[in-house]
């Protein structure tokens, strides 16, 4: 079964178009007035009150903020995948997304670097975090 994807919307059209486009690019929202970034999209900058913003590609390293492993799934469809990992990942300072993980995280994984990939889900794009090049980042 294909896992669900996010339906597009007009409230963050540029973000979803980039994520669901051919390249599957994850964007962050950067405030014109104060330069700080945020994600998910908000109409106004929560830091300075500015209403103008640009979309920029997310480039830097991502880190696992928190996670859970779901043992009791919300539906028969998800039960087929249980147990599965869900996490909040910080993809840039002030920018966070919710993802599934491609491994079952443990407490020691908190704060660890992860790689966020865009996949094609049923009805739209979806985000998956992996541990990436473990050895490369742990040094």
């Amino acid at each position: 079964m294909t896992l669900p994807g996010a339906p597009r919307s007009t409230e963050a059209a540029e973000f979803w178009n980039a994520l669901g486009g051919g390249d599957g690019t994850l964007l962050r929202q950067e405030c014109v007035q104060c330069g700080r970034s945020r994600l998910p999209r908000t109409a106004m900058c929560p830091y300075c009150g500015g209403w103008e913003s640009h979309w920029r590609p997310v480039t830097g390293p991502a880190r696992l903020v928190t996670f859970t492993v779901i043992r009791r799934a919300p539906s028969p469809e998800w039960a087929a995948h249980a147990p599965y990992g869900v996490a909040i990942v910080e993809v840039a300072p002030g920018c966070r997304v919710l993802v599934n993980t491609d491994w079952l995280p443990e407490h020691a994984d908190l704060g660890r670097p992860v790689v966020v990939a865009v996949e094609t889900g049923d009805g739209g794009p979806r985000l998956v975090a992996s541990r990436g090049g473990d050895e490369a980042v742990s040094q």
Binding site: A6, V86, A87, I88
Partner: peptide, 26 residues
């Protein structure tokens, strides 16, 4: 559950509170 940012990941209410609890414990 946010219909775009959260629902597609099979996240439940206990799971969301579990993630807050995990941060607290850590």
């Amino acid at each position: 559950r946010h219909y775009q940012y959260e629902a597609p990941y099979g996240v439940t209410t206990p799971a969301a509170f579990a993630m807050m609890a995990r941060l607290y414990l850590q």
